[in-house]
Design a protein around this nucleic acid. Sequence first.
RNA 1: GGUGAGGUGGGUGAGUGGCUAAAACCAGUAGUUUGCUAAACUGCCGUACGGGUUAAACUGUACCGAGGGUUCGAAUCCCUCCUUCACCGCCA
Length: 423
Amino acid sequence: MLQVNVLRNNTADVKKRLAIKHFNQPELVDTIIALDDNRKRLQAEFDTIQSKVNATSKEIGKLMGQGKKEAAEAAKSDVANWKASLEPLKEQMAKVEKQLLDMIVLLPNLPAAEVPEGRTPEDNVIVREGGDTPILPAGSVPHWDLIKQYDMVDFETGAKITGSGFPLYKGKGAKLQRTLVQYFLDYNTAAGYTEYIPPFMVNEASAFATGQLPDKEGQMYHATADNFYLIPTAEVPVTNIYRDTIVKAEELPIKMTAYSPCFRREAGSFGKDVRGLNRVHQFDKVEIIQIVEPETSYAVLDQMVLHVEKLLQSLQLPYRILRLCGGDMGFTSAITYDFEVFSAAQERWLEVSSVSNFEGYQTNRMKCRYKDASGKTRLLHSLNGSSLALPRIVACLLENNQTADGILLPQVLHSYFGAGVIK
RNA sequence: GGUGAGGUGGGUGAGUGGCUAAAACCAGUAGUUUGCUAAACUGCCGUACGGGUUAAACUGUACCGAGGGUUCGAAUCCCUCCUUCACCGCCA
């Protein structure tokens, strides 16, 4: 979440930037500042009285020691009066603090200066394109047919076991998942990311810290008996490793990677958007996360974009990188680059990665800080990206590399898969 | 799931009602000294929200797993929860 001081010191600029995200309640900023003023005033009042209570209580102890009972009793009644006057103040403070928090979490992150204006995916800016779009042989088919042909994924049985959108991978299909996870993790750890296997369910505090709550409550599966949420991405548990910590400067930058299944309810989609592996409720993904000093976060963002780009190049897939416009960006992000691969048989672009800088938005919720050179405690910046989300990579690999003799896998996967062709 | 013992500052660890933001030691840091990749000594060394200051200094409040309660006063007593460890049960 945003810091009140930022709102207070740059009110006009904040409102301007919120408008780029199509946030339609700019007056909320003023309300928050007013609430914070109120909060300060109440606290000052409270502290003054509490201070008298504390001092007098000490005094009572001394008086008792000296056997001055009457004086002590008189002091006690003073304290009782002060304490009575503290009660309503305490209630008001709790109320104001709650209001403040409830409101400030409604503000999305501010978009960075480079974020293009716009409302829909059409307004995103294509930054780079790469790879060659294959010319498919006659009779080529989409991945959902290939999956059947090579007996790789059984959606019907997955639906029987759980429901639609829960694929059952099988045989070569299952092995390809394992292959990709292994390759992606190796690629990330070679670049200095430390590998983790996090819990796949998180508590409320963790979901709040990375911004899934309260904004995206309905998109997560909720295990109500224990009040746990199934993770929609490894970003949630892994970033939360550093919740409520003051990191030592020499530990920076923190680079982490993790494989996890991801669970998303994805309400409201239909048609060919959800056909085959295009959009499912459970999928596998390898994530990269960095927590860095604020001054370096944009350089790190560029590194991460390059890292993912090279990974896609190694898979020899046609891709493009988009800088998302204000209206299409996530709530918590300051800037986001989406990676899409071109699925040749469907003839459509599929999003396979999204790399974002959250600046201090998550770290402020998480209270993740460090001490800078001057000894001041400051918020760190957090970033993350997928490298990569598997199902759409699989869809694209299958469609783009189909031949009469089977699916030709890119060179880098041969040793992992133990073969170069899926037959 | 049952029983028992714990959860204190970066770490170890003292502290059973006021003299404790909290001993001591270690680590860290600044400095002094000794003719040298080290030792000794001295100071500093938690976080948050306020006040104060150009910035400091200084200063108020809260925080000893979390939340309640008792009390003039709680790290210390009581209750609930979370969690760690040990043993038992169950189990991949």
